[in-house]
Design a protein around this nucleic acid. Structure first.
Length: 880
RNA sequence: AGGCACGUAGCUCAGUGGCUAGAGCGCCGCCUUGACACGGCGGAGGUCGGCGGUUCAAUCCCGCCCGUGCCUACCA
């Protein structure tokens, strides 16, 4: 037998002081460095997490806490299993939101062509300053400001994560705009360039007229918008018939370059090969057949414009149609002159008169104006009435938008950089299926997206805050860039800003001059950098040894709406760079829905701030709520669950206080009931462990929690309480105390991934000293070692039988409307013969626990196995 | 329009081809006991979305339908 130190409950506070514990343990963990990755240990002992760098936008969200906690639970489990954890965290500060905040806060605009101003020192703009035009600054200076602004938000996020108890290795903190990430991002481009995976294209592409930048397919969303069909009558050259097309975009009429209908469509078959004459502008355009025209839609015949949509682009390309680009980069119609080359018209004077009414207008305004013109104009093709026939018919239809934009996307020809992906769909799909998706059905999202991909990845953005594309172009004698001879910065010079740095073999004074060079002004799509998070963690080309030990990673946690961006691009990058998967598992967290089952989001205004929750319910309780969910399942925000979590923490505190204050010798777990308890516990550990290995932390928590409430507190504890303090039975007492202490130790460790604070607190009351392991989070995950040397029970159900008996007597007390602590003078305990026999080992414990002075066992064959009835109880008078 | 998921007690959710379908919260009743009233004991409450099929047996498997959410497509 061994004497253990019992705590004196009087030295403990009556209630668990969670905020104090959170502050204390957070500091202790950071100081002890238990969450640090050990670079010396081999890959197979390492567990690598590719964490999402949260967008630093000043907004904290319970959804963040929810999904990041999922990862942390998995990580803490793996750490306790002995894994060397690589768990970095960065901040995604790239992108449009930060850019806008900087522009507003400092009242500045960026001009990438400007050199850095070493004297620049800006403070947030005063109201007075805002009345003046914004100050124009260089890109490096602009990036500095962005970093300054995001630092505040990063601090807020950091404090939140620390309080939530994320066991991140904070020495790995990074920002996607920092020099190292810029370097890796540009290295990635260089590698893709050398391998021939990137190209430039001057073709029409999706363009947001507000942000004035190109947009990739992944950033496009459809929105249902009101629109209207306008029936326009076209004439046919050399024929006495016309035809009517229905269009929702009449303002593109002057950009009409062709007309098409289905080849089988008998209504229009006679027109193929002829030329149509557009109304108002009198432009002759070819009429050609196309399988892509749907006879059911509109009138079955339609105009092809440069450019109304993606299909227009395809027709334009296939039929080699003219280019009449009318929508400018800013969304206004550009001035053109009919009669000039490319703008043929049968009546240029009239065409220019009409177009003069439209030039300079926004698309939406131009649409309203041209409808008026079409309605008022004389002379339809058939000579009767205006070209616009009837009233426009209102419809709802899907319109493409940039996900952050406010105006519909336009197609316009601009020069952009692309990563070639369309020819690699099979390889991408193969990599996708090498990865284990949790839940598995989320792989469908990836497959759907990949199979339906219609465009290569446009990676250039006409913005300022981001990673510059590390490329220069030589200028010819006329000062025009030679895009085919792009000068990509050499690896050893990265990161560079081509707008302020100078390519090899040139001098700064040659910038922009004939025979000189020009820097690429564009930056990368923010996903171009975010898709490198595994490589940012590992160091990749900057530290190949480290990379070898951290890549591919083990898990990538993320949410499902960015499967088509973050997951997809990361898989693509790993494929293109190293023909590898980036990680072996993807964990997809669901969304947080508000109680009305709407997605919580800033724009709806139904967001609950996490700080408030942490203060109200404690970090452990908030984590409990998070960990209760299953991966991939959307979870309703429900404050009941926080309360349950808080109750669990309280109960753990109280139960621990009781168990650890039992002053007794501990000895072998020798008594039957105690051994049965250990057997049940051991089985529960095996189940929880298996669940966690499958990332089913919610199930594991449920297993642990139900054991705690139904098998530990108020059952086993109540049952063993008497014997634990029975001085007349030292061996029995030692066995009881040992069983309870072991039970608590195991339960603390099972709960530790979810409830890091309360478990650490209790661990340090006794177990830290006993085991020599100062933190529960560094302790070994419970398993066979904990149960070694404890003999299996004779009857695995002996604890259960004892508890059922105890419960029957408690029911008698409830039925008798006396308190659970009331002494019973005598009672009959009824059960069938077999059950009474099985009760024997636990009977003394039951009798003591229910405070029964005398009892009589009554055999009742009518009772089922394992069922007891407490009959004819005689309660002692209430004690004064 | 196609795909994926979901539909179980008032609420939030488990669950399994087979005993009488579970938990917590909420509700009702009782009880201040020696770790805990931030507690304990007990109780009521369900045609497992609907219809059909496979099976000795279906909440579970299959089909259809209804409803909800998301993803993808549609954009003349």
């Amino acid at each position: 037998m061994a004497r253990v130190r019992a705590i004196d409950p009087a030295t403990l506070p009556k209630h668990f002081d969670a905020p104090a514990a959170e502050a204390r343990w957070d500091a202790a963990w950071e100081e002890s460095g238990i969450y640090r990755w050990d670079a010396a240990r081999p890959r197979d002992e390492t567990f690598v997490v590719d964490t999402p760098p949260p967008t630093v936008s000043g907004e904290l969200h319970v959804g963040h806490v929810f999904s990041y906690t999922h990862t942390d639970v998995v990580v803490r489990f793996q750490r306790m299993r002995g894994k060397n954890i690589f768990y970095p965290l960065g901040w995604d500060d790239n992108g449009v939101p930060t850019e806008r905040r900087v522009q507003n806060l400092f009242h500045v605009r960026c001009n990438p062509a400007l050199p850095r101003d070493p004297e620049l020192s800006l403070e947030p703009a005063t109201a007075k300053l805002r009345k003046k035009p914004p100050r124009v600054i260089s890109r490096p200076d602009f990036i500095d400001l962005c970093e300054r602004v995001t630092q505040e938000d990063e601090k807020a996020f950091l404090e939140l994560w620390r309080r939530v108890g994320l066991s991140v290795d904070w020495t790995t903190e990074y920002a996607t705009i920092d020099a190292r990430c810029r370097q890796l991002s540009q290295l990635s481009f260089r590698d893709l360039f050398e391998k021939g995976h990137v190209y430039q294209s001057d073709a029409p592409f999706m363009w947001d007229v507000d942000f004035q930048m190109a947009v990739a397919q992944a950033e496009v969303e459809d929105r249902e918008m009101p629109g209207a069909y306008h029936d326009l009558e076209f004439a046919v050259e050399g024929a006495d018939r016309g035809f009517v097309i229905s269009t929702t975009r009449p303002e593109l009429l002057p950009a009409c370059v062709g007309v098409t209908a289905h080849p089988e469509d008998t209504r229009y078959r006679d027109l193929f090969g002829k030329r149509a004459i557009t109304p108002l502008f009198r432009v002759p355009v070819p009429i050609f057949p196309s399988e892509k025209a749907d006879p059911e839609k509109g009138t079955g015949i339609l105009m092809v414009c440069t450019f109304g949509d993606q299909t227009d682009v395809e027709w334009w390309r296939e039929e080699e149609l003219a280019l009449r680009q009318l929508v400018g980069r800013n969304g206004r119609l550009v001035p053109v002159n009919f009669g000039d080359a490319g703008f043929e018209s049968a009546d240029p004077e009239a065409a220019n008169r009409y177009y003069g009414e439209l030039a300079g207008l926004f698309v939406s305004k131009a649409r309203r104006r041209i409808v008026e013109l079409l309605a008022d104009a004389e002379g339809s093709a058939t000579g009767s009435g205006p070209p616009l026939q009837g009233e426009p018919r209102a419809i709802e239809h899907a319109v493409r938008f940039y996900e952050k934009g406010e105006s519909p996307l336009e197609f316009l020809p601009t020069r952009q950089w692309f990563v070639r992906l369309l020819d690699k769909k099979d390889q991408l799909l193969a990599k996708g299926s090498e990865i284990a998706w949790h839940p598995h059905h989320m792989e469908h999202r990836f497959r759907d997206w990949t199979e339906n991909l219609g465009l290569d990845w446009c990676i250039s953005r006409q913005r300022y805050f981001g990673v510059p594309i590390p490329v220069w172009y030589p200028l010819d004698d006329a000062g025009e860039p030679d895009y085919d001879r792009a000068l990509v910065a050499p690896a050893e010079r990265l990161p560079v800003d081509p707008m302020t740095d100078v390519p090899e073999g040139y001098r700064e004074d040659q910038r922009g001059l004939p025979g000189g060079f020009a820097g690429e002004p564009d930056i990368f799509d923010t996903w171009f950098t975010s898709s490198l998070t595994p490589q940012i963690g590992s160091g990749w080309l900057l530290d190949t040894d480290r990379h070898g030990r951290l890549f591919p990673g083990d898990v990538r946690p993320q949410s499902h709406e960015i499967i088509r961006t973050w997951a997809f691009y990361t898989i693509a990058k790993a494929l293109l760079h190293e023909d590898s998967v980036p990680w072996h598992n993807v964990l997809i967290s669901g969304w947080i829905l508000d109680p009305d089952r709407k997605k919580m989001s800033k724009s709806i205004g139904n967001v609950v701030t996490p700080t408030h929750l942490l203060e109200q319910y404690t970090a452990d309780a908030v984590r409990y709520w998070s960990a209760s969910a299953r991966l991939g399942v959307d979870t309703a925000f429900d404050d009941k669950v926080f309360k349950i979590g808080k109750r669990l923490v309280t109960k753990l505190f109280n139960a621990s206080k009781f168990v650890l204050s039992q002053s007794a010798e501990v000895g072998p777990v020798s008594r039957e009931v105690d051994r049965a308890f250990v057997a049940e516990l051991s089985e529960r550990v095996a189940r929880a462990t298996a669940d966690l290995e499958r990332y089913e932390f919610g199930k594991a928590l449920q297993e642990t929690e139900s054991f705690f409430w139904t098998r530990f507190t108020d059952t086993t504890i109540e049952l063993l309480k008497g014997r634990a303090r029975d001085e007349s039975d030292p061996e029995g007492a030692a066995s009881a105390v040992a069983a309870l202490r072991l039970g608590l130790s195991v339960l603390l460790r099972l709960f530790a991934p979810v409830l890091p604070y309360i478990t650490e607190e209790v661990w340090n009351w006794a177990y830290a000293e006993e085991t020599g392991t100062p933190s529960v989070h560094a302790a070994a995950w419970p398993g066979d070692a904990d149960f070694a040397g404890i003999e299996a029970p004779e009857d695995a159900g002996s604890l259960d039988v004892a508890i059922e008996c105890w419960r029957a007597v408690m029911k008698a007390k409830a039925d008798g409307e006396v308190g659970m602590g009331r002494v019973i003078e005598r009672v009959e305990i009824a059960g069938n013969a077999a059950t009474l026999t099985r009760l024997a080992p636990g009977l003394p414990d039951v009798v003591a626990a229910v405070r029964c002075r005398a009892h009589e066992l009554v055999e009742d064959a009518a009772l089922e196995d394992g069922v007891f009835a407490a009959r004819n109880p005689v309660f002692a008078p209430k004690e004064g």
